[in-house]
Design a protein around this nucleic acid. Sequence first.
DNA 1: TGCCTGACCAATGAACTATTGGTTAGGCTA
DNA 2: TAGCCTAACCAATAGTTCATTGGTCAGGCA
Lengths: 246, 246
Amino acid sequence: MAGAVDFEDERDVRGDPAAVAEGDGALTQLKAYLAQHELAPNTRLPPERELCEILGVSRGELRKALAVLEEHGDIWRHVGKGTFTGARPAEERISIAEISSQTNPAEVMRARLLIEPELAREAALNANADDVAALSACLAGSRTSETWRQYENWDNRFHRAIASATHNALLIALFDTLNGVRRAVVWGRLRYDIQKPPPDHHSFADHEAIIAAIAERDMNAAATRMRAHLQIVQARLLDRPREAAE
Amino acid sequence: MAGAVDFEDERDVRGDPAAVAEGDGALTQLKAYLAQHELAPNTRLPPERELCEILGVSRGELRKALAVLEEHGDIWRHVGKGTFTGARPAEERISIAEISSQTNPAEVMRARLLIEPELAREAALNANADDVAALSACLAGSRTSETWRQYENWDNRFHRAIASATHNALLIALFDTLNGVRRAVVWGRLRYDIQKPPPDHHSFADHEAIIAAIAERDMNAAATRMRAHLQIVQARLLDRPREAAE
DNA sequence: TGCCTGACCAATGAACTATTGGTTAGGCTA
DNA sequence: TAGCCTAACCAATAGTTCATTGGTCAGGCA
């Protein structure tokens, strides 16, 4: 019985309207109403002010009955939204800003170290020629960057392209969340001492090695090299937080 | 005011000789405007209709110049919002429902297999006594479950508790996203052939082994056992999609 | 041909209004 | 006196309206 409200522990009032009208029947009335309508889960019921007229009970009594059902987990309520059948749904939307306010650069780096090598591993399994070409294009772009900002842009695209190469929409979405938080947390930490990345910047070789591993479908190497790359990034981040660019 | 903009250095545009060669000053004007105002990242510039009056160029020319800067990564634009300096920020809110509509149970399972073992590994590193106690409580609860729904509830809490034990807010948030998608995608796949999990259900032993590894701070064992557990879940999911409950 | 101009389109945000669950105060009845 | 009803108010939410803004197109012009 879908979406149903559990009322077996109460008197069966269907078909006995007299009993319904009688006595402390707010809860009983309400259960009868729900049973009669056989509402699907997450259906909105009438607002309290209407419902108490429909059932012929005062709003106070109705609210007491609703509180019982809510405690029982049969319905859930929210100001401005209404009263709904079924269990309260999980939070539908995740805010990057909210996560960012609860974390810090060290945690973000740790999360990258755990997640991104696995993404690289999966990319090595699933990447096609186009994916490898896209990765190479990102590397080439980063090599020709004239500013740190441009470089950061290409670096972003590179890591995003690895997630894309998994061809798994959920993994891509998770990466985007991780990356969004990263960008929010380390926002504005660009280095200004030098104008652009030096030609021997470690990331170039790191990225090249990762691409090679993915192209060769060497899952373990892809993961290992990504981890090594991120460990260097982490070390630089912790040593010189003002120069957190990769 | 248009007169305030200094365009005497039209032939001295730093970093983009191509603009000089073109000769028309829209891009040059725009760069001069940006240089003069020294805007912080993510500052909104005047709307195009105002800016082209300020700079004394047509809207078409201004838009061409803006397109160059956008391609260059110096600004970003969005209909209804405006034009902003710096890199385009990540999408602020992620919708579980949207992700769910783009994925499928196989992808979800694959993502779990990549992510959750790493969470278990990190939990083994960071868990404290309370975390282990919480995990044990979830296992005990699942053992006493009278229905599959109750069992699923405890199983949920168990996996969430592992994420919590990492003590990393970002990893917890990523797990919640993953889990939210999982619940949305495999929604309603509860088994109905038997009323509750049998006492020898594989998950009980699996979970117990995972808890033991975390309690002993054995990171590799925690990851390995989680992976083994999820592989069984995956096999059951693919074999008998109607009985996807763990 | 290339550019300018004006108009229109679609996405966005701000302001406002209506709705709705949650709460409180006063009065009434048993 | 205790419990209940009623009315009003509060705060969160959703819907509506309107102005703003980047994106696009057709006509005119040099």
